[in-house]
Design a binder for these strands. Structure first.
Lengths: 232, 232
DNA sequence: CGAAGCGTTGAAAATAATCAAGTCATGTGG
DNA sequence: CCACATGACTTGATTATTTTCAACGCTTCG
């Protein structure tokens, strides 16, 4: 019970009162997923809102050709599939656990009344959707205007910012991402990611290995994320 | 008055009753803009919701380096800056008229009560934001996975679908877009756009000229938008 | 008529993808 | 506990795509 509250009270729903929060926690469906499991699939009928209790979730889209791109990576206390929870549609993307994860979820019929009872929540939900929108716009912009190394640098900075941990020799990512994962997050190929990380490795900016990246020199990485200044 | 209602009643606000609609129309600020005028700028404090009465509006983002990308092109009866109208923020992008345009707008203080009085509107607004979100996700996906010609073909198809008109010899775009405009919509350069349009011109798929594109063979264009099948 | 803006095209250069071998960990089953 | 199979990563060579730079042509409009 206490565990349920930790994520709930740090989430979108933090605005509502203690009693309602507890009630919300008690009617939630609680699911534990191991790393790599699907939570829902692109195209499934969307009838639930999800909240991550612990762990990390990747939201991604697949082409008919099978190419995949990562739209977002979410962590503790983040809510996703908000819109599907409010209006009937189908999920426009797939959700997959990246680590061992516990997710809470509610059906639309359960969550609707809560929104009606607490109109402040609607504003908060709007704000959440708006911030996701803004982030996506920014990434769209990056993708359209920046070369791969800068996009990769920015992706790493976002990851560190979001869930950075003290690593062995630098700041770790808190997430075990393969080259392929990073490629899907930046719109490139695993080969290109590998080459760039190697280069940055020998420049002493970071250390990278099997599903592991540790940033040694954040300032340098921030420099690499900026508009191109060649310095060979 | 009649003019005001045409767009209002075909918009997001169509859900509310006649009297309220008329009242909403009467308190709107009405602005006429000539082609190329700014409606608001990225970074301005966001305190208004806009509705296009007639004309076309381009939403775009600029980098610090000055590179621009077009996030969306909107036409009659479409609402934009919805979120800014609900919660105080700053506009994450700029809006500019592409043709002679009439826009209606309301301040947050004016529109807030309307949303409270008609809770159905909140759902409709959510749905609107959700559909924009989905579209942006799709375009993000395209940008990450498709080569330029396919992106351009898809952009043209979207434009035709959205505001196609019967042209001289084929289906026109209803919008006078320069090569530069098309480049900013597809995340490439004006040169690449020019080359591709030239090629499609000599293939008989379309005719293009100064700020003008007419599709002759929609089916062919749809083919070009699909996964690559070489046919030299 | 001239200037400005838009468009085209060629050639060169840069960027990134693709293909093809590899190496190096990691963990599993014998 | 070790051998080995597997998955992850690296790197070189080649190719494809796209950008960049530069020059020039065509319209439109004052």
């Amino acid at each position: 019970m206490g565990t349920v509250h930790r994520a709930l009270s740090r989430s979108l729903f933090s605005e509502i009162d203690r009693v309602a929060l507890e009630q919300l926690g008690s009617i939630a469906r609680v699911e534990a997923r191991v790393a790599g499991e699907q939570i829902f699939l692109q195209g499934d009928p969307a009838d639930r809102v999800y909240l991550i209790e612990t762990g990390q979730v990747r939201l991604s889209k697949v082409t008919d050709v099978g190419e995949q791109i990562v739209v977002a990576v979410l962590t503790d206390a983040e809510v996703f599939a908000v819109i599907g929870g409010l209006r009937p549609t189908t999920y426009p993307l797939s959700a997959e656990s990246m680590t061992d994860t516990v997710v809470l979820s509610w059906r639309r019929e359960q969550i609707g009344p809560v929104f009606r009872a607490y109109p402040e929540l609607v504003g908060a939900a709007m704000e959440l959707v708006a911030s996701r929108m803004r982030e996506l716009q920014d990434r769209y912009h990056e993708l359209a205007t920046l070369p791969v190394p800068q996009r990769l640098a920015r992706a790493l900075l976002r990851l560190v910012d979001r869930c950075g941990t003290d690593g062995d020799q630098g700041i770790g990512l808190g997430l075990r991402l393969s080259r392929q994962d990073l490629a899907e997050m930046t719109g490139t190929t695993l080969y290109t990611v590998s080459r760039i990380l190697s280069a940055w490795g020998s420049d002493g900016v970071l250390i990278s290995g099997r599903r592991r990246v540790e940033i040694l020199d954040i300032a340098a990485l921030e420099g690499l994320a900026e508009v191109s200044e060649r310095e060979d």
